[in-house]
């Protein structure tokens, strides 16, 4: 049976012209606005659960509340007690999963979460001010420096937030269950209105 290769689609409506990259239909827009909101849903997302003090935890190397980028460029997020989230390039979920599959003392589960979550990136000097309209967490450098991760309510949706600055500019990855993605995007976009927010297309990573 010959099928056209299936096209994956993000839950976020693409702004402007679209293109296909890595099997995903994504926005081809490029914005250089001071505040940008971009769909990052195509990135591979892997959920890992393992005992807190075990080998998997040691290998992942971050604890709940912080994130690091490993030698492969994967962002490893300590997203909860005994929970990690791995974010990598589109299509690499299986590879990410394979990297953490080690024996451990307790139950370990690794789950490709790519299609279950919406992921977006908010970047710009006013990103914190924008997010502060929707999220009750203190986003100051003092409390939430680069590579801090937390889960809280953003626009009334349980959202994983990772501060992951880009070239010294404040930037946040926001991540929620897929069906609420458009709601979260719309709320962020509305909040960023006074700072001249623009949608940005998909560019890796």
């Amino acid at each position: 049976m010959s099928e056209a290769l299936p096209i994956a689609r993000s839950p976020l409506r693409a702004a402007g012209p679209v293109e296909t990259r890595s099997g995903w239909e994504v926005s081809a827009l490029r914005s250089d606005a001071a505040l940008r909101l971009a769909d990052r849903t195509p990135m591979a997302k892997v959920l890992v659960r393992a005992p807190g003090g075990g080998q998997v935890a040691a290998r992942l190397g971050v604890t709940n509340g912080s994130a690091r980028r490993d030698e492969h460029g994967t962002l490893i997020v300590g997203s909860g007690p005994g929970d990690w989230l791995l974010l990598g390039a589109p299509g690499c979920a299986a590879e990410l999963a394979a990297r953490v599959e080690v024996e451990d003392d307790g139950l370990v589960s690794v789950l490709d979460y790519t299609h279950g979550r919406a992921l977006m990136r908010l970047t710009g000097p006013a990103a914190a001010q924008t997010l502060a309209k929707l999220c009750p967490i203190d986003l100051s450098d003092r409390h939430t420096p680069d590579h801090t991760a937390f889960r809280s309510s953003v626009a009334q949706v349980a959202t994983d937030v990772v501060r992951d600055d880009v070239d010294g500019t404040a930037s946040y990855l926001l991540h929620c269950e897929r069906s609420s993605g458009q709601h979260l995007f719309d709320a962020l976009y509305d909040a960023g209105g006074e700072f001249g927010i623009e949608p940005d297309g998909f560019a890796e990573p």
Partner: peptide, 17 residues
């Protein structure tokens, strides 16, 4: 009781514990 009580809360928007 009107006073100190031991109770359980579920962290719905956070760690889900």
């Amino acid at each position: 009781d009107a006073g100190w009580t031991r109770e359980t809360w579920y962290h719905r928007f956070g760690c889900r514990r």
